[in-house]
Design a protein around this nucleic acid. Structure first.
Lengths: 207, 207
DNA sequence: TTCCGACCGTGACATTTGTCAGGCCGGCCC
DNA sequence: GGGCCGGCCTGACAAATGTCACGGTCGGAA
C-alpha cells in the first residue's frame, strides 16, 4: 500500500476539529498531521508539516478561510485545498474557487462522503456540491463596486454615517450615496439589510 | 464492566454530527444510539432509543435546542441533557439551565474534555464552563419587557416601522417607543444593533 | 479627437427613525 | 380609599437616513 494522505485541519471550534480528526483517522489511507484554530496559522503549520490536503473552514479568526486558501496555494502549490464550511452560500463557493480551492463541501453533507471528497481532491479532481454550483451560477458575481463594498464593510460595525465618513475620509453625502447604491443593488430596504444580504452572498469577504 | 452510557446526538450539520459520533465512539464506555438533525425529532427519537444522555446543539431547524431541552426533560426525566453550542453567549447558558439542562459546553473546548463532560452529566453532576458562568451572572436576565421582546423579534425580519405596526396591530408611535426603550436597555444606537445585542444575549430565544 | 459609459464625490431634499412628555390602566402597599 | 409604580399606548418633535440630480475624472470605442 502507498503512503497515507497527510491532512491539515483548520477550524476555530476545537471540538469540531477534534471530531473531524477522529472521523478521518478511521480511514486507513488518511492521517491527520496538523490541526490549527486560526486562519493565519495555516501557512506556517503547512510549511512545517507538508500536508497533501488542507481542510479549511471559512469562518475563522485571524484570517478567513478564503484568504487562507489563496496564501496557502501561493506558498505551497503542491498542497490541495478543500474548503469545508457551515454555510452553503453561493458567493462563498465562487470566492473559494477564485482563491484556488480544489473542493468545496458544506458541513451538512453526510459524514462518510467527506473521506471520498478528500481522496478525490488529492487525486487532482474538483469536488463541488452540484446544487450549490447551480445556485452560484444563478447568483452571479458581486454587483458592488469597490467603494461600495468598502463602505458596506465599514458599515458592518454599526456606526452612524458621520463615523463612516470620518474613518473613510469622505463626505457624509458620499457615504450616503454609496450606501444608497448598495441598498438598491442588493434589493434591500435598509442599510442593515444591505449588509446582511451582501454578507450572505460573500460579497464582503477577502481583504 | 457496567453497561456503556447510551447517547443521543442532535446537530443540524451532518458532518459535525458524524464526527462527534466518531469521536465519542472511541471511548469504550460510551455508545451512540441515535442521531438527529432537527430539534423536533429529539423527543420522538429519544422515546424510541431511550438514551442516558442527550447532546443538543442550540442552533437547529424545527425547534431550537433550548426548547428541545425543556420538552425532553418533561418527556423523559431520566435522560440527562448536555447542551453543546457554537456560541458562548451568556444568555444561552441561562436559558439552557432554566430549561433543565444538566450541562453546557462550548464547541471551542478541547475535544477530549467532551467525554468527561458526558460522564459527569451522566453521574448527576452539573457541567458548566466557569468563565461563561461568571459572565452569565454579570450579564443578568433579560431587561426587556414582553412587548419589547415581541417587537424586537418582529423587527428581526427587517421591515419598516409601518410593517411592524401592521403585523402587531399597534400604532407606529407605539412601535417606535418600544424600539426606543429596547435600544436604551441594550445600550445600542440603532434598531439593528439592538436586535444584534438581544440575539447575542439569548433574549430573543424561545417561543 | 470626440463621444460615451462607469465610477467617484457632493449637496439639497423628502422620508424614516429615535426621543420625549404625557395619558391610561391594573396591581400593590400604606 | 389614596398614593405609587410599572407597563402599555400615543402623538409631536428633532435627528438620522435614503434619494436624487448634478459635476468631475478616467479609459475605451467610434
Amino acid at each position: 500500500m502507498t503512503e497515507p494522505i497527510k491532512l491539515l485541519l483548520a477550524d476555530d471550534q476545537a471540538l469540531v476539529r477534534g471530531a473531524l480528526a477522529a472521523l478521518l483517522s478511521l480511514e486507513p489511507d488518511l492521517t491527520v498531521v496538523a490541526e490549527v484554530g486560526r486562519g493565519d496559522e495555516v501557512v506556517p503549520e503547512a510549511r512545517r508539516t507538508r500536508p497533501d490536503v488542507a481542510l479549511l473552514d471559512v469562518e475563522m479568526p485571524g484570517l478567513d478561510g478564503i484568504a487562507a486558501t489563496a496564501r496557502l496555494r501561493a506558498a505551497l502549490p503542491a498542497c490541495r485545498v478543500l474548503v469545508v464550511t457551515t454555510f452553503g452560500r453561493p458567493g462563498y463557493l465562487r470566492r473559494a474557487m477564485e482563491a484556488g480551492a480544489n473542493g468545496f463541501v458544506v458541513k451538512d453533507t453526510p459524514a462518510r462522503q467527506l473521506a471520498d471528497a478528500v481522496r478525490r481532491v488529492h487525486a487532482g479532481l474538483r469536488v463541488v456540491d452540484p446544487t450549490l454550483a447551480a445556485e452560484t451560477l444563478a447568483t452571479g458575481p458581486s454587483p458592488l463596486t469597490d467603494r461600495e463594498t468598502e463602505v458596506l464593510r465599514t458599515a458592518r460595525g454599526g456606526g452612524t454615517v458621520a463615523d463612516l465618513a470620518a474613518t473613510l475620509h469622505l463626505s457624509e453625502g458620499t457615504v450616503r450615496n454609496h450606501l444608497s447604491a448598495a441598498i438598491g443593488k442588493t434589493g434591500a430596504r435598509n442599510r442593515a439589510d444591505a449588509v446582511r444580504v451582501a454578507e450572505e452572498n460573500g460579497w464582503l469577504l477577502g481583504d
